[in-house]
Nucleic acid binder design. Structure first.
Length: 525
DNA sequence: AGTGCAGTTGACTTT
DNA sequence: TAAAGTCAACTGCAC
């Protein structure tokens, strides 16, 4: 039997800057492995669009591996079973993969894999692929460590790797990519998603740094401009088609380029520089959030600050939740964003925050169900960013300022002409500007004139903004002042709080802890 | 030309 | 990444 070094691909679907692949190649014959785990894809946060993106990425990964002389071997089933099966045909000398900060399901699966490998005497090497530090005690040196990590050289990709070739007498079982149906997933036909793959990721990065990113800072907040001018790298980073380190170093190179051009007297827009630094800080926030889930996996299910347990649990109204999910709340900006999300499986950071804040405060929904819904609809779903963010927008972390977004104000700020709202809510097509964000204020005559009867063509607002916000504030601030919440918040800060504005001495007391914009990197994108 | 005043702006506080 | 409210400084303008 042949001896192989197994490279287990997970959420790292690329060839470049792939330390696991580079290390395995040093040790001998490489067998690249991907395992479709039906049980994983049945988890409530997973969606067929994620699966589609992964399949697209895998096809490219296979081609990328082919260029190195390798072939991707993919199997469907439980990882331990797959490894066991492989073992009857090859000698697995070592397993190489990247550290993964996932949910409980992948965490438990990794424990099972670890146990099996240990029992079988096979060493498992795991490598970090971002700025997340395993077993971190506190955040004191975190920022510096992050920068060090990002400055490490890109993992070298050998030009040629000796790959495993099955003997014709004992071929590995043929396993074509499963169809979505095989995994009991139904693909949504009306979604218009970004296409997965390492080369798409590289192209996206290039166009952002060449042109699209020049106005990033000012364009990221409005859903209209964000679509083109945000980096749109988030799904690629989430599924590992590109690493944060690759992005960071490319941004650095671009910044140096701009500085150099400036020195030589070439005029360049100052906006681009500022946009790049703004983008760069979001790269670090990306890891900052994932670190939270890595340090405290339970926050996938429970409040970071336990003092808030029980605050919303008994108030869950499924009818409200349903209307929010479908974009039928009667608040035009909320509904427009939700419908946009349905179609594109992405929306910019600010609007994500607004959607979540509306669910948490206006509708007083516990974050868990909205989180699962949004996870499915974010093509860039990254557990380590998602759950901390959702909790933050719900006000249950203890350490963050309560931020309640006004759907009407956000609409006026981010969509001043109402073009976004009209585009995504055809019911409001003929409604003029004065009413576009508050159609319920139209008189019956106006409703007839503008062909939009409130309660018939477009919903009556699901809640009254003023009353709902007042009641939410009252409940959350009352709890926030409790002894339990105050001491709980202290503990959360010790472990998870950003140390950014702490040393040496802040000149002015910060009004709020400046958690940066970023979901997904989404960040905004 | 200085004064009073309503309305605006921005910094800061509170929730 | 919030929004609403306070307060003081500032502005334009009438007299």
């Amino acid at each position: 039997m042949q001896t192989v070094q197994l490279v287990w691909f997970k959420r790292d679907l690329r060839v470049a800057d792939h330390q696991a692949l580079a290390q395995a190649a040093k040790l001998g014959t490489v067998l690249p492995l991907y395992v479709f785990e039906p049980d994983l894809w049945r988890q409530p946060e997973m969606d067929p669009t994620h699966f589609q993106f992964v399949c697209q990425s895998l096809q490219q990964l296979d081609r990328g591996l082919n260029d190195l002389g390798l072939r991707l071997h993919s199997f469907t089933g439980d990882v331990v079973e797959v490894l066991r099966g492989l073992q009857s045909q090859v000698v697995i000398e070592s397993v190489h993969s990247h550290e993964e900060t996932g949910g409980k399901w992948t965490y438990d699966r990794d424990l099972r894999v670890k146990a099996w490998l240990q029992a079988s005497g096979i060493p498992w090497f795991e490598y970090p692929q971002n700025g997340v530090v395993r077993g971190l005690r506190n955040r004191d040196r975190w920022a510096a460590t992050w920068k060090e990590r990002m400055s490490q050289p890109i993992a070298p990709t050998p030009a040629r790797i000796e790959g495993f070739v099955p003997k014709s007498s004992t071929p590995l079982p043929a396993t074509p990519l499963p169809e979505a149906n095989d995994l009991q997933l139904s693909l949504t036909k009306d979604a218009d998603c970004q296409i997965g793959g390492e080369s798409q990721a590289a192209a996206m990065l290039n166009s952002f740094l060449e042109t699209r990113g020049s106005q990033y800072r000012s364009a990221m907040s409005s859903p209209i401009t964000a679509q083109e001018q945000c980096s749109r790298l988030s799904p690629y980073i989430a599924w590992g088609c590109i690493t944060i380190k690759q992005v960071y170093q490319a941004v650095r190179a671009k910044q140096m380029g701009i500085a150099e051009a400036k020195n030589m007297g070439v005029a360049c827009s100052p906006a681009f520089s500022r946009s790049l630094s703004s983008f760069q800080s979001r790269l670090s926030w990306h890891c900052h959030f994932i670190q939270k889930l890595d340090d405290e996996p339970e926050l996938e299910f429970r409040n970071l600050c336990r003092a808030y347990d029980g605050m919303r649990e008994d108030d869950f109204r499924s009818d409200h939740f349903e209307q929010w999910c479908r974009g039928l709340t009667g608040f035009p900006m909320i509904d427009a964003c939700m419908r946009y999300l349905h179609r594109h499986r992405w929306i910019n950071f600010r609007m994500r925050a607004m959607l979540m804040s509306f669910a948490a405060y206006h509708l007083w929904l516990h974050w868990r169900e909205p989180a699962l819904f949004l996870a499915k609809f974010f093509l860039d779903f990254e557990p380590g960013i998602h759950f901390p963010q959702v909790q933050m927008q719900s006000g249950v972390t203890g350490i963050n300022t309560i931020r309640i977004y006004s759907p009407v104000k956000q609409a006026m700020d981010q969509d001043p002409n109402g073009e976004f709202v009209r585009r995504w809510i055809p019911e409001l097509e003929h409604v003029p500007k004065p009413f576009i964000f508050e159609p319920w204020k139209m008189s019956i005559d106006d409703q007839t004139r503008y062909r939009c009867r409130i309660g018939v063509d477009y919903p009556v607002p699901i809640v009254d903004h003023r009353t709902a916000v007042a009641s939410a504030k009252d409940r959350i601030y009352t709890l926030r002042r409790s002894e339990q919440a105050i001491s709980g918040a202290q503990q959360v800060y010790e472990k998870h709080g950003s140390r950014k504005n702490r040393d040496p001495l802040p000149k002015r007391r910060p009004r709020s802890s400046p958690e940066s914009q970023l979901w997904l990197p989404g960040m905004e994108e």
